[in-house]
Amino acid sequence: MNIIIFFIAFVLAIDEFALTQTLHRPLIASTIVGALFGDVQTGLLIGAYLELASLSFEETFFLNFRKSLVLASVLCTALSATKTLSSEETMALAVSIIIVGTALSHIIDFVVTLLLPLSRNQAEKGKSVFVYQLIALLIRGVAFGVCASYLFSKGTEIPALLSSITTTNGWIFNAFAIIGVLLPSLGIAVLMRNLSVKDNYGIFFAGVSVAMLAYYVSKNFYVTILLVALLAIGLGYYDFNRAEKETVKTTNKGGGEKWW
């Protein structure tokens, strides 16, 4: 049983970021797990619940920032299908499992960051970075597989275990979540250096202010990005046209135009 859980969590965790990017959806994932454990009906029920919940999480639980529902889909369905816990009990556990799954995802994101220097070395030599793609894939799959099979092996102790994990080790999860939010600043700082942003600090801070305003109004990452990207394109277009017109004017003054 644990091997099935490991395997299915392994595949779905990878599918969340690569391959079909479809199978990990709670409705599909839970149906597959339900079918593997011989109880499709429970799989469909829990899948439908989690799918609807995931849509509502977008707005209510603020979990839309790289939340991972793979662990919840696999564990909730497996626990219900094997009658370890009732459907109501597993559904009540769903949010705690999503938190653990999301935290695990953040820890993996940090671990995969350690592959970046190696990838840079490969790129410097002009070699393929496929090995690091493969390592990242295995890290993600194995971590989710081990976590899912470990939690599943705890059976009826899961509620107490999850509660102790989220309360006693909550600050460590939080630390990795904050790393997940702050570390992209390093990637952006490298781009800032390579784009010589110091020559355009005014524009940089204009971007900061507009994004703050857009986020404050929309409360949505993607809407903010889209609004700001359109503004950035507009800004670049305006500057390009203005510079072109100025070039034409200068050329005309010193060139063939009869100013007299």
Binding site: N174, V208, V210, A211, Y215, I225, A229, G236
Partner: peptide
């Protein structure tokens, strides 16, 4: 470069907005 600088500032804010969510 102007458009890129504008965008980088905005990306930093948008990514940071996840902080409150986390």
């Amino acid at each position: 470069m102007i458009a890129g600088s504008f965008m980088l500032g905005a990306i930093l804010v948008a990514l940071g907005s996840g902080y409150a969510m986390q």
